[in-house]
Structures are given as C-alpha cells and as structure tokens.
Design a protein around this nucleic acid. Structure first.
Lengths: 202, 202
DNA sequence: GAAGCTTTTATACATACGTATAATAATAAA
DNA sequence: TTTATTATTATACGTATGTATAAAAGCTTC
C-alpha cells in the first residue's frame, strides 16, 4: 500500500526565481496604483505569496523598489544592446529610441511612478545614476556613429540630451493623457526634430 | 480696571485664506517628500493647524490635492499671461517657456510627484486636462504669431508639442539629477532645437 | 455685552502599513 | 529514513493613516 502523499501547501522555489517573481509583482503594482500602490500587501497578493517574503528575500520594501528599478532599466539596456549598433538613418535612430520607450502603456506608468520617487529616495537615486549613465552613453554613441557616417560634425552629447529629453517629454505626455498623442505621431515629431537638429549648422 | 484679555488660542481667518494656506503647505510637503509626503499630519503640521481643517475646508485629502494642482497650474498660466503676447525672437519663445518651467527646484519635484499621480487619480486627471489644454493653446498661439511675423509657414500645433515635450524632458532630467544639466544649458539646447525646427522646410 | 454662527481644536476610531518573530513545511544531504 | 537547512507561512506589534465627531473658541451682529 503506497503512502498517501498530501498536496504540498506551498511551492519552494530558488531564491533568484522568487526574487524575480516579487520584482514582477512590484512592477505590476506600480503600474496599477503608482507609488502608493506599492505596498507589501499589494505586492504579495499580486505575487501570490505571504507577507513575509519581501523581508526575507530583499531585507526591506525599499530594497525591493530599488531592485525593481534596476530590473526595468536592465530590460531597457538589454533591448538597446540587441538593436543595431549604428543606425544609418534618422528612422533608425528614432526606432532605436522608441523600441524601448513605448514598450507598453503600463510601463510608462511605472517609469512615471518611479521618477516621482527618485528625487526623494536616495536608494533609488543611486540606482538611477548608475543606469542612466549607461543609457545616455549608448545613445550618444549611436548618434556619434551616425554623424560620422554622414560626414556631419555635431556634439553628440548635446544631441543625445535633446533626443532623450524630447522622447521623455513625449513619453510623459502620452502617459498622462493618452488621447493627446499617438505613438506614430510621437515618432514623427521626433524624426522631424532630429532631422532638423542634425541638418542645422553648428 | 480693564478686563484682562487672554491671548487667543488660535486665529480665525477667512475660509479662502485658510484654503490658500493649506494649499501652500501641501505644495511644500509634496516638494519635500513626494506624494508619500502628502499626508494629513505633514500638511497640517506644515500649515500650523490641527488635523481637522482639511476635511472642514476641502472635504477630503484628495480634493486638497486637486486644489493644489489647480493652484500650481494657475500660477503657471498667470505668469504666462504676464509674458509678452508674441515673442519676436527664438530667445523670446524660449524665455517664455523657461520663465514658468524652471521657477524653482522645489516646484520641479512637485510637478514630478503630481505627474506620477495623474495616471492613477481620476480627480487629478480631470484637473490636468482642463489646465493643460489652456497651457498648450497659449504656447501654440505664441509660436503661431512668431511664425507669421517671420513669414515662416509651420504647423504651430506640432511645434508646440515638440517644444513642450522638450522642455518637460529637460525639466525632468534636471529634476531627477541636478548635476547633469544647468538651466543655461537647458535653455541653450532648447533654443538650438527650436531654431532648427523652425528653419527646416515643411 | 449677549447670541449665534462657523472656524478650529482635540480626540476617537477603524483600517492600513512595514517589519519582527516564531512556527511550519518543503527540499537537500547524509 | 533521518537530519539539517531554509524558504515559507501565519501572526503579532507598534505606528501611521484618513476621516468622523463633539467640544471649544473666535468673530460678527445685534
């Protein structure tokens, strides 16, 4: 007679996977309710775990927030690295920016929620600086390569700032009020601005 | 013998003034701690009143938040109306944008904190749409007048979107990490972009 | 100076919050 | 099969939260 094995009351998974699950749940909560939706109860309910796991795996809620931010930026940079290294047209440059930026509407809300926290949360600020520098460098490099290929002389650092700021602004606009701006129009405005800036003398 | 009059335990001021005080205190709290710093305790401590006044004068904390947003936008629009109606140079246009945008670093944090809430707070969303439409209209009008004066034909609505988005993006960048961008450089990038866009054919 | 009105305070209340704790149970190792 | 490890749960605890309530007190009007 075989021993009757009871159904396990919970599944035990490797720490790395559990952390990833909690990070995913955190992002979902940020998307739904902004930084105010980022609570232990919400996150653990979303992840389907008990309340203790955040402390166990991250030490604190704030550490989980920093981890979530790192994960989001990680995805962004990863996508960027998959893109062609040196876009050879304005369209290519714009495509590079928007492939990562306008991934999904939910993600926009997450960025916005996190941005609002960075200024008042040192741990997040640290995480931001680290990742943003990589991001900016990557964009500036692409612009630089593009300009070199076209024989245009520009300050790629300046153009990168313009491009990133414009995309962030369009993004923000799209996030706050979806009815004002479509992805296609955002791309188009970006393309037009970039073309004008790169064509201008100086 | 005159009656000894005890010092009043509190000052009673007109509802409008009290509301303004609470709105000011709200903005200060948002600047310090983001949306998470926007609590009844913080606000009333900042305003130097007891906890009951928010409910009494606004009905709810959320209504106060909407009022604070309206007040901030009100100041923005007011400043804009004081500016010259039709800037006649690129510098004038840029000046118009930045006179309101970069008022103070504290205000940047407030905008950022509020932006993060708009997507998840219907009352704020309503207040935003109303004011943003006025803002955008005002900017587009100035651009339109400028172009007409110079004999340039443009879609002022498009250029307004570009300009506003760029300024918001620069603003965001400045807010998140002050070490990356000075006001002067932000203005300069804006000027340069605007000049290029307005000079471009089409 | 007295009455009435409404601002203002003080307090109470139920809920939500982040974290600490101890018990439990799933897995790996022996 | 037994033991050891640690992921996981359940719960407790103190604090913070937004709002409701009632008492107190300032101001206006007569």
């Amino acid at each position: 007679m075989t021993k009757k094995s009871a159904a396990p009351k919970f599944e035990r998974i490797p720490p790395g996977e559990r952390r990833a699950l909690l990070v995913e749940a955190s992002i979902a909560c940020l998307a739904k309710g902004g930084i105010q939706g980022f609570t232990v109860d919400n996150i653990c309910a979303e992840a389907g775990t008990s309340r203790g796991l955040i402390t166990h795996h991250f030490g604190s809620k704030n550490a989980l927030l920093a981890a979530a931010y790192a994960a989001i930026y990680g995805k962004l940079l990863e996508n960027l690295d998959r893109a062609e290294q040196a876009p050879e047209s304005i369209d290519g440059l714009v495509g590079m920016m928007f492939a990562d930026s306008f991934l999904s509407r939910d993600y926009l809300n997450v960025w916005l929620a996190l941005w609002g926290e960075i200024a008042v949360n040192p741990a997040l600020q640290l995480e931001h600086r680290k990742n943003y520098a990589l991001y900016r460098e990557r964009i500036a490099r692409a612009i630089s390569a593009f300009a070199r290929g076209k024989g245009v002389t520009i300050d790629s650092y300046d153009v990168a700032t313009i491009l990133i700021s414009l995309v962030d602004g369009l993004w923000l606009e799209q996030c706050i009020d979806q009815s004002l701006l479509s992805l296609d129009r955002a791309k188009d405005l970006c393309r037009r601005t970039l073309a004008a800036v790169l064509a201008a003398p100086g």
